[in-house]
Computed example of a mutant assay.
Amino acid sequence: MQPETDVEGGATGATGATDADATPSAREKAEAVRESLSARDGVLVAFSGGVDSAVVAALADDALGDDAVACTAKSETLPDAELDDAKRVASEIGIRHEVVEFSELDDPDFVRNDGERCYHCRTMRLGRMYEAAAELGIETICDGTNASDPGEGHRPGLRAVEELEVRSPLLEAGIEKEEVRAIADDLGLSVADKPAMACLSSRIPTGLEVTNERLTRIEKAERVLREWGFSQFRVRDHDGLARIEIDPDELDAALNHDFVVAAREHLSDLGFEHVTLDLHGYRTGSVSPEGDESEPDESSERDAEPVVADVFDAEYPTR
Rank of each mutant, 00 (worst) to 15 (best):
G16N: 03
R40V: 00
S25A: 13
D19L: 14
S38L: 05
V43S: 09
E35P: 00
V45E: 11
V7A: 15
V33P: 08
G13Q: 00
D6R: 08
R27F: 14
R40E: 15
T12G: 00
S25I: 11
E35F: 02
R34H: 06
V7D: 14
A17I: 15
R34I: 06
D41C: 02
G42Y: 02
G16V: 06
R34G: 05
L44T: 01
S25M: 04
A11E: 07
G42I: 01
V33L: 06
A20Y: 08
A32Q: 13
S36N: 09
A46D: 04
S25G: 15
S36H: 04
A39K: 12
A22M: 07
A39E: 14
T18V: 15
D19I: 14
R34E: 15
S25H: 09
T18Y: 00
V33R: 01
T23Q: 11
V7R: 13
G13E: 04
P24H: 00
G9W: 02
D41G: 15
V43R: 02
D6E: 09
A26T: 15
G16W: 03
G42E: 03
A30V: 12
A26H: 12
A22L: 04
T12L: 14
L37I: 07
A46Q: 06
R40T: 01
E8N: 14
E28W: 08
K29M: 13
E35I: 07
L44R: 02
A20W: 07
E28K: 10
G13R: 08
G10I: 09
D19R: 12
R27G: 14
E35N: 10
S38R: 11
R27C: 10
A17Q: 09
A32I: 06
L37C: 04
V33W: 03
A46W: 04
E31M: 10
L37E: 04
A26F: 11
V33Q: 07
E8M: 09
A32Y: 04
D6P: 09
E31Y: 05
T23D: 12
E31F: 07
S38K: 08
S25Y: 06
E8P: 05
T12Y: 01
K29G: 12
A46E: 08
D6W: 03
T23L: 13
A46F: 07
S38W: 01
T23Y: 04
V45D: 06
G10H: 12
T12F: 03
V7I: 12
T15Y: 00
A30I: 09
A46Y: 02
V43F: 02
V33A: 05
A11T: 12
D41T: 05
R40S: 13
L37K: 03
A17T: 14
A20Q: 11
K29C: 11
D21A: 15
A22R: 10
A30Q: 08
A39T: 08
V45I: 11
S38Q: 09
G9T: 12
R27E: 09
L44M: 14
D21Q: 10
T18Q: 03
T23M: 07
G9C: 11
A20G: 10
